[in-house]
């Protein structure tokens, strides 16, 4: 028998999950630990948080991490320049430092009156020390503001999702506190489901052909950027809009530009796999 409160996340209508992923989400909610998600680009890491928020009917707070992001920014900002500036005119109460403390994303997630879903997106983009700087805050779900001598403690522990592209190694101490899940690239069966969510009235024949081409493209190791889920979705949208019959898909790979975004990949494919017949490029028979 499971705890009734455990199976909170079952996926949402527009996001297809695998069972291990659902379990990982649920255990991270139940234990109140951050969930670290890693996987190839285009496997829906960021979408997961959105889906959790939607399924649990909670607000989503997103913190996009950039190379210049510092941990402090997530907690609060003390706008000293504004305060200095205001002090010259005396029309605002500069004595109260509180007016100049602005909570960051983490701070806002802590102080929200209801539990929220907090997404820390692409945590590995920032400086190597960034995750370490957040350790204590994520562990205890509180932080101190020395300027006002206030301690902000989470009213409700936010459901925390952290995504990483594995560009940088994350510190061990940080990893120890997380639940980890690696999203594999979906296999053809799961992909069918995913595409089905986006295009409910897609003809099965078209889908089958498109997926066949898609997965054979992914097998070409020479590509610098393999097509991923989002490219596939775009491509299918283009195929549907163009009214392409499914016989032509494998023969011509129409709208190839939506799948292969790098010029070198495009050229490589055209030169090595295609041949010109009349005015159109077709796949070379092997």
């Amino acid at each position: 028998m499971k705890n009734a409160s455990f199976d909170q996340f079952k996926g949402s209508a527009d996001y297809v999950t695998s069972e291990p992923l659902r379990n990982a989400v649920n255990v991270s909610i139940a234990l109140g630990r951050p969930l670290l998600i890693r996987g190839e680009p285009g496997t829906g890491k960021t979408m997961l948080a959105r889906s959790i928020a939607k399924a649990l009917e909670k607000k989503l707070i997103t913190w996009h991490v950039k190379s210049t992001t510092k941990a402090q920014e997530g907690l609060y900002l003390y706008d000293t320049v504004q305060r200095l500036n205001d002090s010259r005119f005396g029309d605002k109460d500069v004595a109260d430092i509180k007016h100049y403390i602005k909570l960051g994303k983490l701070g806002r997630a802590f102080t929200a009156p209801e539990q929220v879903v907090l997404l820390i997106d692409e945590v590995d983009k920032a400086d190597i020390e960034f995750p370490n700087d957040l350790l204590n805050e994520l562990d205890e779900m509180s932080f101190h503001i020395p300027e006002t001598n206030e301690t902000i403690t989470a009213i409700h522990r936010p459901v925390t999702v952290i995504t990483s592209n594995a560009e940088k190694e994350l510190p061990d101490a940080f990893l120890r506190r997380c639940i980890f899940h690696y999203i594999e690239f979906p296999d053809a069966k799961l992909m069918e489901e995913i595409v089905g969510v986006h295009f409910p009235d897609l003809k099965p024949g078209l889908l089958k052909e498109a997926l066949k081409v898609f997965y054979s493209l992914r097998e070409i190791e020479e590509f610098r950027k393999k097509p991923s889920t989002s490219e596939l979705i775009d491509w299918i949208r283009a195929l549907m809009a163009g009214g392409i019959s499914h016989d032509d898909i494998a023969k011509e790979v129409p709208f190839m530009g939506t799948l292969l975004k790098k010029e070198t990949d495009y050229d490589y494919f055209v030169n090595n796999y295609m041949t010109r017949v009349g005015d159109t490029l077709v796949i070379r028979r092997r």
Binding site: V27, A30, R38, R176, F180
Partner: peptide, 27 residues
């Protein structure tokens, strides 16, 4: 152990994936 104690694991399959999610931090 906390997860086990919380009764979050029903069968061996779930144990496999959950233990992996908790114990293993890199693919």
């Amino acid at each position: 152990m906390e997860a086990l104690a919380g009764g979050h694991i029903n069968n061996m399959d779930e144990f496999y994936f959950l233990a992996r999610a908790i114990l293993v931090k890199s693919e």
